[in-house]
């Protein structure tokens, strides 16, 4: 199926913004998407990956080495030539084994030549791209632990079957799930940078627009992509500008104080909340081309940065988003 243009997605504003923020600053550490099936979670993530310009890698390198990192992967890659490759979007299936994810002994070469060689797994494939996990709440905990660990460290370390391999694995982790089908452990949730809630737009005209666009895309994928190319280009420029600008943006002290105050007010545990809030606000400011990080940026990203970190009171049914909004209203009017 041809990819759906990112800018042609109807609604889903929060998710789109979270993805853009994560694309500008991958160090934010992944996006968790909550929502029912069929609400376009994976479509949006896929669309963003497809939007990004092709990356330059060393030719035939299985680890997508950058040209200036030539020869640093376990293979090692020796080709002097480079080639362009699409930004990888790896869809991790439920029930994937540790072998598939981490990589394992290359059985074929072991059989044929008696060689002990490493067969890279999905983590290597996702390097410099996106790793999407549908129904992450149904994934086995030990795998989720492992993935979050690699996502945070940017490196996959394999010590098993007599292999000792280390390779880069930097990717934007996108998890999705429906909380009605089992929840994610709070410890794991906390390690996701951002979280968003996705719902199908309820307005009829928006739904009709979705159907219309999907039908148009199905009928003529190329023509549809061409129609949206200009819009997609704009988004692309925005990301590129954001990435460039990110390094020079500083967060003023007042904004820092605001963030600390908000985190305390909503009772977000740990430092990770504040750090992510700061990073996300900065990335958003960079994305918007702002000169400095302001309170507005912080307020815009506060729900997605904090919503999944609030300590839960089981018998209090107030949604996390509501609690954050309330705190924002109290603190900043």
């Amino acid at each position: 199926m041809a990819r759906f243009p990112f800018s042609a997605i109807v609604g889903q504003d929060e998710m789109k913004q979270a993805l853009l923020v994560a694309a500008v600053d991958p160090a934010i550490g992944g996006v968790m998407v909550f929502g029912d099936r069929g609400t376009g979670k994976s479509t949006a993530a896929r669309a963003l990956a497809g939007l990004l310009p092709p990356m330059t890698t060393v030719e035939d390198c299985r680890y997508h080495c950058k040209p200036d990192e030539r020869g640093s992967c376990p293979d090692p890659c020796t080709s002097g030539r480079n080639r362009k490759a699409a930004v990888p979007f790896v869809d991790l299936p439920l029930g994937a084994t540790e072998d598939r994810v981490l990589g394992a002994l290359d059985l074929e070469r072991a059989l044929r030549a008696g060689e002990k060689a490493f067969e890279p797994g999905l983590l290597a494939k996702a390097h410099r791209g996106f790793l999407y996990i549908d129904e992450i709440n149904l994934l086995e905990d030990h795998l989720v632990d492992l993935l979050l660990d690699v996502a945070a460290s940017g490196e996959n370390l394999v010590e098993r079957e007599g292999l000792s391999v280390r390779h880069r694995a930097q990717f934007v982790l996108i998890g999705s799930g429906n909380p009605e089908e089992g929840e994610l452990r709070p410890q794991l949730l906390d390690r996701f940078g951002l979280s968003v809630e996705v719902r199908t737009p309820e307005a009829i005209d928006q739904r009709v627009e979705i159907m219309r666009r999907c039908a148009a895309q199905e009928a003529d994928p190329e023509g549809f992509a061409a129609d949206w190319k200009a819009e997609d280009e704009k988004v692309l420029k925005q990301i590129a500008r954001g990435q460039k600008k990110l390094a020079t943006l500083t967060v003023p002290d007042e904004a820092m104080a605001d963030m600390a105050g908000l985190c305390r007010a909503v009772g977000a545990d740990g430092l990770r909340g504040e750090l992510t809030l700061m990073r996300a606000a900065r990335a958003l400011a960079a994305l918007k081309g702002a000169r400095a990080v302001t309170r507005e940026h912080m307020i815009a990203v506060a729900p997605m940065a904090l919503r999944h970190r609030l300590r839960r009171d089981v018998l209090d049914e107030t949604g996390s988003t509501v609690r954050i909004d309330r705190a924002i209203a109290e603190l900043f009017g």
Binding site: R37, G38, T39, T200, I204, R207, M211, R212
Partner: peptide, 18 residues
């Protein structure tokens, strides 16, 4: 399209796939 979308909405179907 409107007829289908409105029906889905009234029946509480959130999936776009449907």
């Amino acid at each position: 399209l409107t007829a289908l979308a409105a029906t889905a909405e009234l029946l509480g179907i959130s999936s776009v796939r449907a």
